[in-house]
């Protein structure tokens, strides 16, 4: 602390280039700021607002083997400082995704991480194999944590055994860097994370949404057509931060942190808690340029404190004297 304070005092406003690159296992990203799956389409939808080349990566919406129609509406409900969604992984299927979304993304100068969804282990494997044949895919993010589909999704993410089974099968099917996206709807997320590490995952990302619901007090009906959905937004940030901190302190693989990140300061918190990179989700809906503002803010945060590399923030949390770490 003392040393850092001296550095801050010594800073005189001379501009310093901050090294924004981060390593996420085998991936080198030019920025720690990536997009959260399902909130950014395939990037094209935000191209008017965001310089995609400044993102660490575009993490696409979830892609399954066949087209999935998604859930009936209403699919969202606004809640205090957040929102519930039950989109249900609507997507056109992996072939249509490759033909349109991926083909467009391939022309953009940004790493593409494809979020992989499935109803069964075999479907996850098939999608992963198909995507592995595409040179424009930088990594896969295994979605075993979507709370909004009946089969697959969350069912694979809430027990170590099921999560390990699907991760093992996909690991064997792809040479691409493999990120496993974890659900917060479990008793001990670090236990699942450790199981993923043991199965050869290159990184874990967390948290997916927290299961929640909302009821209309006039009709007495749930606001979401599917009754329950996933809570996101600033409301979940403290929970997400705690889970990222728990996982980062118990696994050796990199952690991509997310959950209610709205500002550069939020991103800093996740990195201090142990995240190598951070994903921005619901904030994109509030401000379509949120990823750019957070990137700029992270850079100036580091510059103002004379921190040469943004990666220096990762895990740099200062333990409470009486607390555990």
């Amino acid at each position: 602390m003392g040393v850092r304070r001296c550095i801050v005092l010594a800073w005189t406003g001379v501009s310093m280039d901050v090294d924004m690159t981060v390593e996420v296992g085998p991936l080198t990203l030019r920025s720690p700021v990536v997009t959260a799956s399902g909130t950014f389409g395939s990037g094209r939808e935000y191209a008017d607002f965001v310089d995609l080349t400044r993102l660490g990566a575009v993490v696409t919406k979830g892609v399954s083997w066949d087209a999935w129609p998604g859930n009936p509406g209403p699919r969202i409900a606004e809640t205090a400082s957040g929102m519930l969604n039950s989109i249900g992984l609507q997507n056109p299927g992996v072939e249509a995704f490759i033909e349109s979304d991926l083909a467009w993304l391939a022309t953009q100068d940004v790493p593409v991480i494809v979020n992989v969804a499935g109803h069964t282990v075999a479907e996850y494997v098939a999608v992963a194999e198909r995507l592995s044949a595409e040179s424009s895919v930088a990594a896969l993010e295994l979605n075993i944590s979507c709370p909004n589909v009946d089969e697959g999704g969350l069912a694979f993410g809430t027990t170590c055994k099921a999560a390990a089974e699907v991760t093992r099968a996909v690991r064997a099917a792809t040479g691409l860097p493999l990120i496993v996206k974890l659900s917060p709807n479990v008793t001990d997320v670090s236990e699942i994370a450790r199981a993923m590490e043991a199965e050869g995952a290159d990184a874990v990302s967390l948290i997916n949404t927290l299961l929640g619901m909302s009821i209309d007090t006039v009709t007495w009906r749930p606001r979401l057509a599917r009754t329950v959905g996933g809570l996101s937004g600033p409301a979940i940030k403290p929970v997400a931060l705690r889970m990222v901190w728990q996982v980062a302190s118990r696994v050796g693989i990199p952690v991509i942190g997310m959950g209610g990140i709205m500002s550069a300061e939020d991103a800093v918190e996740f990195m201090l808690a142990g995240a190598c990179a951070v994903a921005v989700g619901t904030a994109n809906f509030v401000d379509p340029a949120a990823t750019m503002k957070i990137t700029d803010g992270l850079e100036s945060y580091c510059r103002q404190r004379d921190i040469p590399r943004v990666a220096d923030l990762t895990g740099a949390i200062v333990a409470q004297r009486t607390g555990e770490r």
Binding site: G73, T282, N284, P288
Partner: peptide, 20 residues
């Protein structure tokens, strides 16, 4: 009901003869 407004979040879908 709509979240992003730019076609990304798929909250506001309408069923049509040619799909969602």
């Amino acid at each position: 009901l709509m979240a992003c407004g730019v076609g990304a979040c798929l909250s506001c879908v309408v069923s049509t003869r040619t799909g969602q």
